[in-house]
Design a protein around this nucleic acid. Structure first.
Lengths: 344, 344
DNA sequence: GTGAAAGCGCTAACAC
DNA sequence: GTGTTAGCGCTTTCAC
């Protein structure tokens, strides 16, 4: 930072005080429109650049929100961040970005950084590694607004924005039933994560709603990797009663399933249907293209940002208000992998 | 921000001055280790939280760098940002993120935001829409370090980090020649962007280096979309002499080419080879999997961050130094779409 | 509608 | 090795 123009320079030239200049630049209604005009004119003339740091220090508002994600390289989080940034920047709020790389210790460091930067609020998605969330609890003690998105703690009473995994899973399974599949399997993920638990529950509920008996043999648990999907196919084809469709809790496992089925020369979608979850970019482009459940990532970011900003603004006035949880609608994307009996 | 503990509170309790506390917290060598210990102990006891804003205002260093990208939703930029953040946060620098959405006016606004936030330096990738870059030039006038990555201006004298598009294209084309393709086409992009121009030049150079005559009919220009790729296949198969391989300047167009070839039941890679550029995630998962040129996105981010940080640190001492341009090695990823004559 | 003056929390030059 | 002092550039009472 070089020696730069300050409001005092403007004040001196205009023979008024810096207080008036400050008010004029902030369109304070008590300042005459003529003074405002003069000040802004002079500011432009002198190439004045406001110092947001000084303003923050004095006013106690940083106009910055901290965004903590596992990794910007993951498509999902990149999209959410895009949504967050769109809303924030349109409201003049800056984004401080921090990546946890799925590590709890970096997560703690991130909160420290946000606290030192005096962010007005925090948007975060929890690292996979994290089991104890006391570092997040400290935030409520310090009265700094926090909204969690996508990854949350079931027993942590904080506003969240998630998509309805249960409903998405229900709809995906119902879709498989609707198009005529009879014996529907599920590849499920780590149950400690509420997302995957809800997807399993949604799957089960859809079967029940259609009076289809539940067969535990048809539920394959894994890490939802491509490899896991391939392995699940081996497993399913080893059963006495082979399924004719599968709902995978994530697209990468669905991709593995498709690969496994192709190796076995199973005809999709006629002899076997596959639907995933996440609507990853590759889904549209593989063959057969993959039906999936879209998580409305950008919308999730926008919604979380709006919620946080509301909290920031209202915390000025009221102190206690009820926790808000926002649940977004999952969107069914029907593609070739389940396009049996359907004119696409 | 609530009323919080300051260095004065620590000073009072310890019956020393706030100056000493400040020095102790910053491990100033002139302070006795005993005092440092006591101060840090008391700080922890009082739950002291340093105020980075006050520190920045006084010291003139924000310890923040501005990162401007078209969109965090684009895989490429998400990955670069990941690399940038990894380096920065390990050095205690914060990231202020701004998206241009490919718009020049937002780009200008972003620079304004960075200037007001008094960032120590800026990393940016230019919006597609931008033709006049005077807003970037203002930064050099203000002596704020700037590094451009991926998208740059040929005639703008500023440090850049890019991958060697020319070499990547050369290597991709050479690979097609090596595995035995004879008549190699190119799908090229907007030539005003240096990236695509360099890829075209690399393609031509490889042909020349192998004494293959250049046929302008084999160069199809488009927007590099999937649709563009499909259209290029129609075009190529309308020629008297049909090519037997194509180097596409981006993966999405390569995907379109693969789709077009599949529709025509052309055997890949035996009768036709396809190689793309960018190494998008989907490339591994489509069928045939797509050979491509990897752009080392995370490495690009890390490199750009390191370069900027060097500039920030050296600008303290020297004022004039020569512009540094860093060119990263493109990485050839051979997959099924060109795996003729190769044991993969 | 504008001025005067204090101070946000920290750092750093200058003492000794 | 520590104290003293003076701000960084802005906002914000309190005047009138």
């Amino acid at each position: 930072m070089l020696k730069s123009i300050t409001i005092h320079d403007i004040a001196r030239e205009l023979k008024i005080t810096s207080g008036t200049v400050s008010r004029a630049l902030n369109d304070n209604p008590r300042i005459s429109s003529e003074t405002i005009r003069l000040v802004k004119e002079k500011a432009k003339e002198l190439n004045y650049q406001r110092n947001a740091i000084a303003s923050s220090l004095r006013s106690g508002k940083s106009h910055t929100i901290g965004v903590m994600i596992p990794s910007a390289q993951m498509n999902f989080f990149g999209s959410v961040v895009r949504g967050i940034e769109m809303i924030s920047s349109s409201l003049g709020l800056n984004i401080l970005l921090y990546q946890t790389e799925e590590s709890t210790s970096l997560e703690k460091k991130g909160i420290e950084v946000f606290l030192e930067a005096k962010v007005d609020g925090i948007l975060a998605s929890i690292a996979k590694e994290t089991t104890n969330y006391s570092h997040f609890k400290d935030l409520s003690a310090k009265a700094i607004p926090l909204v969690l998105f996508d990854r949350t703690f079931a027993d942590f009473n904080v506003p969240t924005v998630v998509i309805d995994d249960y409903k998405g899973a229900f709809n995906a399974t119902q879709h498989l039933i609707n198009v005529g599949y009879k014996r529907i399997a599920h590849v499920s993920g780590p149950q400690q994560l509420s997302n995957f638990n809800n997807r399993l529950r949604g799957y089960l509920a859809a079967l029940r709603a259609n009076e289809i008996s539940i067969d535990n043999e048809l539920i394959y648990s894994g890490d939802l990797s491509i490899q896991c999907g391939i392995a699940s196919v081996e497993y399913f084809f080893g059963l006495k009663e082979i399924p004719d469709a599968v709902f995978a809790a994530e697209d990468f496992s669905a991709l593995g399933i498709i690969k496994g089925l192709k190796d076995r020369k199973v005809n999709m979608p006629n002899d076997f249907g596959v639907i995933g979850f996440a609507n990853e970019t590759f889904g549209e482009h593989i063959s057969p293209s993959l039906s999936s459940v879209d998580q409305q990532t950008v919308e999730m970011g926008k919604t979380a940002a709006r919620l946080l900003i509301n909290m920031i603004n209202s915390s000025k006035t009221e102190t206690s208000k009820k926790i808000q949880d926002i649940v977004l609608e999952p969107l069914l994307k029907i593609r070739e992998s389940t396009a049996i009996n359907l004119a696409l």
